[in-house]
Design a protein around this nucleic acid. Structure first.
Lengths: 194, 194
DNA sequence: GCGTTCTGGCTAATGGTATTAGCTTTAGCG
DNA sequence: CGCTAAAGCTAATACCATTAGCCAGAACGC
C-alpha cells in the first residue's frame, strides 16, 4: 500500500473544496476519502470525525490578529473592519468572493464571539451598508430587506441553538489522550421557500 | 394493530416539539416515530421524508397575512413589523420566546424572501435595535456586536448556499404523483469556538 | 546495514440512518 | 356483509460514521 501522504490540513482542505463545489449536504467522509484517494477509515488517522470537518477553523489565530489590528487602527478606515468585511465580500459588490463557496463563507463568518473588538470590527461595515440601503429606499430596499432578513435568521437561530455558547475543539490523537465528547454543533436548514 | 390516528400535522408538530426539546441533531424519523407510538416506516404515510420535517412551515399563509397587515398599517408602530418582531422576541428582552426552542425560531425566521413588504416589515425592528445599541456604546456594545455578527453569519451563509433561491415544497402522496427531487437544504454549523 | 518502533494505510464489523416494497389489518361506506 | 382505501406493519436495501485490529512501509537507533 503506497502512502497517500495525507495530513490533517490536507483533509480539511479537501473537505472545504467539496463543500464549495457540492454544498454541505455532500460533505461525507466517504466523499472526502474518495477524493483524496484513500479508504474511508483512514481519515480517522488525521481528523477526529466528520464534525471536525464541519467546524469553522482557527478562531484563535483570527482573534489575535483582529485584536492587534483594531488596537492599532481603531476608528480609521481599513484595518480589521475592512479586512474582515472584505474577506466576507460585504461591500458595493456584496458577497462576490463567497457566492458559490459555502465553506469559504463559513470561514469568513466565523468570528470569535468572545472577542468583542474583533466581532464589532468585523460587522460594522455590514451594519453601515444595511443602514444606507434602508435610507435609500426604492428598488434597493429589496436588498436591504433581504439583508436584514438574513440577519434575523442568523440572530434567532444562533441564539436559540446555543446562545453563542462555545463548542469543544477536536485535537489529533495522542497517547494517553482520550477523545472528548462530541462538540455541540447546531445545524439550521437554510430557509428556502416552504 | 390499533391505529394511532396520526396526520401530517400531528407528525410535523411532534417533530417540532422534539427539536425544541433536544435540538435539530435529535430530529430523526426514529425519534419521531417512537414519540408518536408508531413504527418508523409508518411515518411515510404522512410525511415525505425527514426533509419535510426540517422545512420551516407555511410561508404562503404567513406571506398573505404579512401583506394584508403591512398594507393596512404601513409606517405605523405595530402591525406586521412588531408582530413578527414580537414573535421572534426581538426587543428589550431579546429572544425570550425562542431561546431553547430552535424549531420555533426557525418558524419565526422563515419569512418568504420574495415578499419584499413582509420581509422588510419583519426585520425593521431588529435593524433599529442594532442601530440603537451601536449608538449607545459601552457595555451594550457587546450585544450589538453579537447581533451583527449573527447578521453576518446569516447573510453570508444564505447568500453562499443558494442566494435566496427557492426550494421545492413537499406535498402528500397522491396517485400518479411521483415524488420530486430532494429539496436543496443548506445546513450551517453554528460557529462555536474553533 | 539491520532491527525496532511508530505511523498511515487497510479490512472487517457494528450500529445508526433514511427509504422503498409489499403485506395485513382497520375504518368507512354502499 | 362485502368492498375499498388508508394506515399500520415487517423485511430488505443502501447509505453513513465509527471502532477494532492487522500489516506494511518509513524513520530511527545501534
Amino acid at each position: 500500500m503506497p502512502r497517500a501522504g495525507l495530513s490533517t490540513a490536507r483533509v480539511v482542505e479537501v473537505a472545504a473544496e467539496l463543500v464549495d463545489e457540492r454544498g454541505w449536504e455532500a460533505l461525507t467522509l466517504a466523499a472526502v476519502a474518495d477524493r483524496v484517494g484513500v479508504r474511508l477509515p483512514s481519515l480517522y488517522k488525521h481528523v477526529g470525525g466528520v464534525d471536525h470537518l464541519r467546524q469553522p477553523p482557527r478562531h484563535r489565530a483570527a482573534r489575535r490578529r483582529g485584536v492587534e489590528r483594531s488596537r492599532g487602527r481603531a476608528g480609521r478606515r481599513g484595518g480589521a473592519a475592512s479586512a474582515v468585511a472584505g474577506a466576507a465580500g460585504v461591500g458595493p459588490r456584496p458577497l462576490r468572493p463567497v457566492r458559490g463557496h459555502p465553506a469559504r463563507a463559513a470561514r469568513c463568518a466565523a468570528v470569535d464571539p468572545d472577542d468583542e473588538a474583533a466581532s464589532a470590527a468585523a460587522t460594522q461595515p455590514l451594519f453601515g451598508r444595511v443602514r444606507d440601503l434602508w435610507a435609500a429606499g426604492g428598488p434597493v430596499l429589496v436588498d436591504a430587506a433581504r439583508t436584514v432578513r438574513a440577519a434575523l435568521d442568523g440572530f434567532v437561530t444562533i441564539e436559540a441553538s446555543d446562545g453563542f455558547g462555545l463548542t469543544a475543539r477536536w485535537r489529533p490523537r495522542s497517547p494517553g489522550c482520550r477523545r472528548r465528547s462530541t462538540p455541540r454543533c447546531a445545524r439550521i436548514v437554510s430557509p428556502g421557500q416552504g
